[in-house]
Amino acid sequence: MIAYLSNIATLAAIFGLLAATLNFMVGQAGIFSVAHAVFMGLGAYSGAQVALLLVPDPFLACLAAAVVAGGLSLCLALPALRVRGEYFVAASLGLQMMAVTLFTEAKGLTGGMGGLVGIPQPRIFGVVVPVLPLALVALVVFLLLMAAMQRGSFGRTLGAIRDAESAAEALGKNVAVAKALAVAFSAAGAGVAGALFALHLSFVNVESFTLEQSVLIMAMLIVGGTGTLLGPILGAVLLLSLPAALSFITFIPPTDIGSVQQIIYGGAMALLMIFRPAGLLGDQKRGRSEA
């Protein structure tokens, strides 16, 4: 039972980090990406390769993951600089589909469908540590960073770009650099989450980084509320406990549990958007005009 709970808690921290970093992109910068699982995947593969080939040092793995995911986030930043709104969503969807193909085909780096197996447990100075404290630390560090940025000049610049891009540009803000940095930061966070995910499961394959995963992360953010600091965490906890809760309902045949779960996610997303567009923790007045 303890092991089960700690597993759920670790996943909640990892997905909380994913949802929170996506929130930074969506809620702060107004860049509506549905390709977050791509950067989680990049981080997971780079973290796993560091652990497999070099040392199972979690800090090194997270660093490598952040660098790779942050660096390759340029693929997402480029279209974000050219187009907005629906166009960008379409571009990020395209990126997501391309990435899944690449993850499947680049067998040398990712192991293809079979994935990477036997990723060693993380060790700090030779001592095996569970992923839970690491994930919690990462989550808190990123939340603090984001809270600091939200109050600082960078966050305000991003908010200005989100609300009125032309006006921000007219006031001398470098829109391109600010957007690219926001995307890179968010992707780096997703990469760290991915590395922790890989270390936690000691196995990764492309199944974890598909469009469904991106949508799940987005659903966590939406359910919790965009633009809030703790909303995404609440959303992650709620959506992760859903499968556990469903397994207690006996009349659903086990083969259909996956479908029922998806129907609940999908239905919740649609109903929330119709009746409570700013999410559970969101400021309802604000959500009406801009979410």
Partner: peptide
């Protein structure tokens, strides 16, 4: 209903995506 409270395009996108997920899984069942 979303247009009535002036929801932005992302609200519409998420709601429609949610419905797509529901349809996909109902058909699968």
């Amino acid at each position: 209903p979303i247009g009535r409270h002036e929801g932005g395009f992302f609200t519409v996108f998420v709601a429609a995506f949610g419905v797509s997920i529901v349809v996909q899984n109902v058909i699968a069942m």
